[in-house]
Write a protein that binds this DNA or RNA. Sequence first.
DNA 1: GCTGAAAGAATCCAGAT
DNA 2: ATCTGGATTCTTTCAGC
Lengths: 159, 159
Amino acid sequence: MSESVTLDPVDWRILAILQDDASITNKALADRVGLPTSSCHERVRRLRAAGVISGVKAVVDPAAVGRGLQAFIAIRLRPHRRDLVEVFTAAVLALPETLALYNVSGPEDFFLHVAVSDSADLQRIIMDQLATRPEVGHAQTHLIFDRPLTAAVRPRTSG
Amino acid sequence: MSESVTLDPVDWRILAILQDDASITNKALADRVGLPTSSCHERVRRLRAAGVISGVKAVVDPAAVGRGLQAFIAIRLRPHRRDLVEVFTAAVLALPETLALYNVSGPEDFFLHVAVSDSADLQRIIMDQLATRPEVGHAQTHLIFDRPLTAAVRPRTSG
DNA sequence: GCTGAAAGAATCCAGAT
DNA sequence: ATCTGGATTCTTTCAGC
């Protein structure tokens, strides 16, 4: 890939701020990092061009639209149905309750992150959408308590 | 919380677009949903005020800053150390490799999502930062293959 | 919910240090 | 490589319809 992008402390400060709130104006961002607006704008443009900032996204709160319960579903595929991975993936991503799907190593094959309205809704999805699929061997549910805690991508060295 | 927000199909189209790319101009967004700019702007403002759009964030690609390997670490706390949950949570969120921490039900207590540079780096974090903590009983690693597949929050009814 | 207007900001681009 | 200043477009707010 690219990789060899070198970021100085000012770049990291910009990234910290934009990962928290990208709707900040360039002027306010420039003030907070101590740069003129043109230089600040140029830094952000470069971070985007380098792929460090891969996108800017609105975050929708599932609870605000009636999906107040989240869960991980750890899924094992049937060993002789591994050729159906793409079919499985497409079907799962098409579910409106799906937030993310992770193909993982270990005893489980996939971690499916969903947001549902309640436990009955969750059961309905597991029973009707997952357990009925021929490639699905086993599914174990882990309810998510409270809210997921997320963190920004940060430097290892300084701040 | 609030919940009783009713969203019409145009709201959902706006949410779909902004969850994909919130750096679109209001003018372009208005064109795509077929609204005048003032009405479109007002809709977005309302979605924010209602908490449906909880924020706008820059997405940083961990691979572009040398963190090309992601994993879930399923963690079990020691039964008699459950009072240390907040200490554990704070310590884990302070790690620069942490992307998210989920408190879950089931045999595991937490799913920790990390982005690291390589497997040696992952081993170092598990050995030095997790296994050494007195409240940590067991940690099982699940490497994430490819890229996580993420999906927008979508309506259940129509589109 | 739409139109139009006005102040401020973003965005781009010359040119200077 | 970073800054200044200016031109154009867009955002954002606020009247009034």
